[in-house]
Each structure stands twice: as structure tokens, then as C-alpha cells.
Computed example of a mutant assay.
Amino acid sequence: MSISHCFIRRDRYRISAYRLLIFLTLVSTMRNPGLLTRSYFFVRNAIERRTQTEKFIVSDKTSHDVLFSDGLMELRFYPQQDETPFVLDGDAIVPDQQQHRTPILLVPPLGVYHWIYDLMAERSWVRFLNARGFQVYLVCWGAPSKSDAGLSIDTYVNHWLSKAVEQVQEHSGQQQISMVGYCMGGLLTLLWAGAHDRGQIRNIVTIASPIDFHASHVYGKVLRWVKQSTRRVPIPEYFRDSQRFHVPGDILSVMFKMTNPLAGVVSYIDLVRNLSDRDYVTAHLTTREWFNNMPDYPGATVQQLIFDFGIKNSLADGSAMIGKHRSDLTSIRSNLLAFAGKSDNIVSVEAARKIMDLVNTEDRTFMEVPGGHAGVFAGGKAQEHTWTITADWLAQRSD
């Protein structure tokens, strides 16, 4: 079939769909307006979902200033957004007019975009923390490509996070800051603190961040077996090429979905059942964009995750070499709050809890909260648990 025929068929499809919309609009004023009106919106949303998906994507909308950029990475500042009460995920939020002294630096994972912290207006970490009286900053890791396969944890920790901390200190005028990291973002935060913190980091919050890789579900058992089987076997030259470990974003997306394949089916069924509700469709497609639109995972970073953190499980022993710097987790003195999701299929409770055995701070708290790997961070119960606990805990330690 030629391309012209494809365009003709697509146009005919749209014309037919619009005729159906007109028909439903007319009959919606008849005997059963409620049912027919819902049918109209069902069809309209179904068509727009297929033909104009971008209309439903509302992530990354909170106003911000870019303070610093370095290649792929940039640092954002989010000025206070709300001065009057507003509704956030069904709950009334009254903005705190008094600002806490200690600013917050949000650190996202690799393999996803920074806007998971600003998913939508009613499910936005930056807006929520802003309303709770915090100065909010956010690191963006950008979108690595195959040409960035050599990008390693050394760059993320020793260079980019160091720059981000310095910029937050300079912009806020405060010498001490708090850092909040989700998944790999929490791990990068801990690695930075273990290598560079000289009192700059007052508080650390980690959410579903793995430390003991051998304690995480099935793949943890596999890693333990590999370590025992290859203890005296040198790494073959073939595995030293970072290009071979580079993971494209579309492959990463499939791998993530495979951790809970049933969830995708249930989610789609729920979408069909609620297709007449435009707000529901917007929330569904925006959240789906998180899992369908993932950036590449740099090969050199994947190498260290597999060999050093995974097979050797070096972090469980308390330290790891990051470039030319040794990160010693036992040297961390910051106040620490660590979360784990009770039903997380990627990072087990035991894998996240290990940090409690390593840090030498008296003020450390570990929390198990409802949700899987994504739900513990941005699910329906996240604001009630993870978000509120984080804000309350930081508020007591930020003045």
C-alpha cells in the first residue's frame, strides 16, 4: 500500500470519527443526556488519545529558572508557586508563608526524566514541597544517547552533583542543604555524601534506593551466584567496552514493564473504563509517559552497577571507588530518612534497609510505606505517606 493511500485512509477515518462525534452531540440532548454525554466524551477522548496524544501530557509544567547547565545536565530552581490554598491529589493544601532556612535539592534517578518530580499539577513534588515552605532545586540529567555510552558514575557524582551542591549553596545563601533522591538518585546522593560531604548536607532522604544488591528478589540471588562462581575469574576484555552495556531507552522501558506485566493490563482496562473522564485520561497518559519515554542508560554507568555494585556488592560493605574518589558510606553524618516500598518488585525492603547498618549518624529513620517501585514515589498513596512524612521530617530539621 502506498503512502498516499495511507494518508487517504487516515483522513477518511478522521472524517468518519468527526461525523460520529456530531451525531453523538445531537443525540446527547435527547432522552438520556447523561449516558449519551458520557458516550460522546468517550469517543472524543478515544480519538484524541490516538491522534493528538500530546494534548494529554501535562508533566514538567511548573515554572522554574535554570541556574546552571553543563552538557546534558542542568540545575533548576522553583520559586514559590502558590500563595492561596489549593487541592493536591484530593487533599487541601494551605501554603506555608514561613520559609524554612535549609533548601532542598531533588535528585532523580538515571533512566527516567527529571519531570517525575513534577509529574502533574496535582501530583508534583516541587509544588508540594514549595507549599510546605521549602526552597526547591532540581537536578536534570538530560537525555543521554549512544554517543554518551562512556558517561560514568564518576561524572554524575564527582562532577555534576558537586556543581549542583555548590550552586544551591550560592543561590540560596545557605551553607547546609537537604538532598532528596529517588531510587538511583538516592544512591548517587549517598555516594556523593560518602566522598565529598564536609558538613554541607544537613539532611538526606532516600526513596527505594538499593544498597545491598544481593538482597533484592530473584536478581539478587543471581548476582550472589555469579559472584561465587566467578570469584577468581578476571573480567574478559569483551566486557570492558562501555558501548556493549549501553541500554537504549526503549529497551529500558520494556525491562521496567516486565517487572510487573500484569499492571500494564490492569492499567489499560482501567483506562477504557474511564475513557469518558478527561482528567483520568490526562493522568493516565502523563503517568504512562514516564514508563514509555525513558532516556538511554549510559554503558559505563551500567558496567559499574553490574560489576561493582551488583556482582561484588561493594556498597553493602560500606564503600566503593567512584573515579579517583572513595565513597565511604560509614562516614556519612547527615540526618537520614530512608523509605522502602512494601510491594517493590525492583528494590526490596532489605536492599534499601541496609543503609541503616552503615551510616554513623544518630538521627536515622527507616520507613516501610505502601506501594511498588513507582507507587512509593508518585502513586495514589504517596502524598499521604512518602511525601507528607518527608516534608514533616525535613521541617523539623531545616531551621
Rank of each mutant, 00 (worst) to 15 (best):
M356H: 10
I355Q: 03
Y117Q: 00
S348A: 08
V112L: 05
W141S: 11
W115H: 09
L106C: 08
T365W: 11
D328Y: 09
D296E: 13
L75S: 01
V254N: 09
Y156E: 03
D91T: 15
A46T: 11
G249I: 07
V226A: 10
N130Q: 12
G133E: 00
H159I: 13
I177K: 01
S2R: 12
L358H: 09
R44Q: 15
V27I: 15
I93S: 01
Y156D: 04
K227I: 04
I322C: 05
V266A: 15
I355H: 02
L35I: 06
V369M: 09
A215K: 01
V349D: 04
T62M: 14
M367K: 11
T361V: 06
S2I: 14
F256Y: 06
H159T: 15
D363A: 11
G150D: 14
D148A: 11
P210L: 03
Q52W: 11
Q304C: 10
H171I: 04
S59K: 09
L24T: 08
N292H: 12
T206Q: 01
I389E: 03
L271T: 12
A46L: 07
I389F: 13
K61I: 12
V136D: 01
Y268S: 12
F42H: 10
S59V: 08
N345I: 04
Y117L: 02
L188K: 01
Y238L: 06
I177D: 02
I22M: 07
I8Q: 09
L67D: 00
L337Y: 08
I177V: 00
G150M: 08
T206M: 02
A338S: 15
D357M: 08
Q176T: 00
T287H: 10
L36G: 06
R76E: 05
G185L: 04
T84C: 10
I311Y: 07
L119N: 05
M258S: 14
E170W: 08
Q243R: 13
Y219K: 06
V139R: 02
V226S: 09
L275P: 11
T330P: 04
D270V: 10
